[in-house]
Design a protein around this nucleic acid. Structure first.
Ligand SMILES: [Zn+2]
Ligand SMILES: [Zn+2]
Ligand SMILES: [Zn+2]
Ligand SMILES: [Zn+2]
Lengths: 163, 163
DNA sequence: TCAATGGATGAAACATTATAACATCGCATT
DNA sequence: AATGCGATGTTATAATGTTTCATCCATTGA
């Protein structure tokens, strides 16, 4: 159950990506939304990295494909993917990661390693509740929570990630 | 005790700003850091607004002063103010606010009204603890937490902030 | 079949936010 | 006076994100 989280350990990454794409197809289908080739490719690129990618990283990767895209192409794909809960934007990095819980209601919550730059998405509901409660105590109607934690992942603490 | 938080209600704002500046002088003095005129002016501008200001807003305000500053001037002042805990950067807005708890150890935590754009900084320690605990449960060494909540403040919920 | 509709993309320009690099200034110490 | 060093000035550029308008293309409905 409580084994090392996925991004931190080796795994069959092709299968991991394929699974994410299959899920995405299902989710979009259910929502009657169109997961077009560009959108799918952007999602695939994001999943392949398991690390946050900037919009211009994606733009570069598309260029490698021979797809001569301009910024709006990528930003539009990202908007779509975010709206359907398939990717998240990490505000503190200006970058995007695949959602680890696509299809399930959740308030994401990110552990960002400053050494290896892997990101782990948690969905600890009690944290979300504590946050919502604190907002409510101030009479504030919370709509969107950004919770991003920078630090060192278990692996990088070993190998002298200490500066 | 639990009255309306400061930014949400009228108050003697000149005194509020003066207090913040006086605190800043004391804090910098204690740290043997120099709160130079530019740095002080930037801090004053930030406090005057009680709302997040972008670096280029500040640049514009300095220009009004007749100070013909370039971007690095403002970013350097902001870096200094952040390092001494006098302002915070709001990652989800690319903007800066005065720290409401300057001088005290705290993990900031922001309620950002999407209607009036006021920001309230809380320092709810139990939320910070819940977050740190969740990170520790994953073996993650948390160093810096970004927690920003967008929504509607009490005042704006009244006046049809509902879209 | 064909025109109309509306979502999706292409393309160019532009806006905003942030940093790099190097010169200079001014004050404190010696 | 010479030196050192933090702070500032200046120019250029990088990185991130948006606006606008034109065009394409799949679906629909006549
Ligand atoms: Zn998610
Ligand atoms: Zn790591
Ligand atoms: Zn603070
Ligand atoms: Zn408000």
């Amino acid at each position: 159950m409580s084994q090392t989280p996925l991004p931190y350990r080796p795994h069959n990454h092709r299968a991991c990506v394929d699974q994410a794409l299959a899920d995405a197809h299902r989710i979009c289908n259910d929502a009657k939304a169109r997961l077009t080739p560009t959108r799918e490719r952007v999602l695939e690129l994001i999943w392949q990295s398991h690390k946050p990618l900037g919009a211009y990283d994606l733009l570069g990767a598309l260029a490698q494909d021979g797809h001569n895209a301009a910024p709006p192409t990528v930003y539009r794909a990202l908007d779509f993917l975010q709206q359907h809960g398939l990717v998240h934007r990490i505000a503190s990095l200006n970058a995007f990661v695949g959602c680890a819980h696509a299809g399930h209601r959740h308030t994401g919550f990110f552990l960002i390693c400053r050494a290896c730059r892997n990101v782990l998405e948690l969905s600890a509901p009690h944290v979300a509740e504590a946050v919502d409660q604190a907002a409510q105590d101030e009479g504030f109607a919370a709509e969107d929570t950004t919770l991003e934690i920078a630090g060192l992942c278990p692996a990088c603490q070993q190998e002298g990630g200490h500066e």
